[in-house]
């Protein structure tokens, strides 16, 4: 863990909300973007990423000293998102444009930095992947998590991370190939 972050975490453990504010500001963009890819709805993504930060703050003492904040936060965020997706499925809300969001529709944290045909095509393909493939692509490419971190977050062995990643990328490749102009 970086020294600056370690110092901030230590201050958070002592109840310093301003230190937590620095951490939140550092990761807000990435966190909302990842939630956006998982949930497919900008407002929901903002809300979920904020809820995950609240949970992280309440449990900050449980963060082990040798673990980076962001990878720990990602496991919380993933569960918040999955919980919301499950609730959505229970409510059977078919009227929401959840699975296929238009990346050009929103601005602000969690949206595409460079909007062009190619990036929007990739973005759309990722959001159309099945959930187990989407989450591993998000973790690997957009959260920049290591295999060890992904294995911890998903509760699976590293070998399974590799094979799931292979199938997810293969599926994504096929989708992009089919959609190529």
């Amino acid at each position: 863990m970086e020294t600056v972050e370690a110092a901030l975490i230590e201050r958070c453990r002592r109840g310093d909300a301003e230190a937590f504010g620095d951490i939140v500001r550092a990761y807000a963009g990435r966190a909302t973007g990842a939630a956006m890819l998982l949930l497919g709805n900008h407002d929901d993504a903002l809300d979920a990423s904020q809820e995950a930060f609240v949970r992280a703050w309440r449990n900050i003492r449980r963060l082990k000293c040798n673990r980076a904040f962001y990878s720990w936060y990602c496991t919380i965020l993933r569960n918040v998102c999955l919980d919301r997706l499950r609730r959505r499925a229970r409510r059977k809300t078919v009227d929401l444009p959840d699975d296929h969001p238009d990346p050009a529709e929103n601005t602000g944290p969690g949206t595409l930095a460079e909007k062009n045909e190619q990036t929007e095509r990739v973005w759309n393909a990722v959001t159309m992947l099945p959930l187990n493939h989407r989450e591993i692509i998000v973790m690997s490419h957009f959260q920049e998590m290591s295999y060890k971190e992904m294995a911890e977050a998903l509760g699976i062995p590293i070998g399974t991370v590799m094979s799931r990643l292979y199938h997810a990328r293969q599926r994504l490749r096929e989708m992009l190939e089919k959609d190529r102009p």
Binding site: A17, G21, V24, R25, A28, G29, R30, T32, G33, L46, Q50, F53, V54, W57, T107, G108, P109, G110, T111, L112, A113, E114, Q118, T119, V122, W123, V126, I137, H141, F142, L176
Partner: peptide, 24 residues
């Protein structure tokens, strides 16, 4: 390489402040 081209917007200071206020 294609996936690497997809990047998230860097939030402005005002957006970050608003975000943190909501969390706080």
């Amino acid at each position: 390489e294609e996936l690497a081209m997809v990047k998230f917007t860097e939030p402005t200071d005002a957006e970050l402040e608003h975000y943190w206020r909501s969390v706080y």
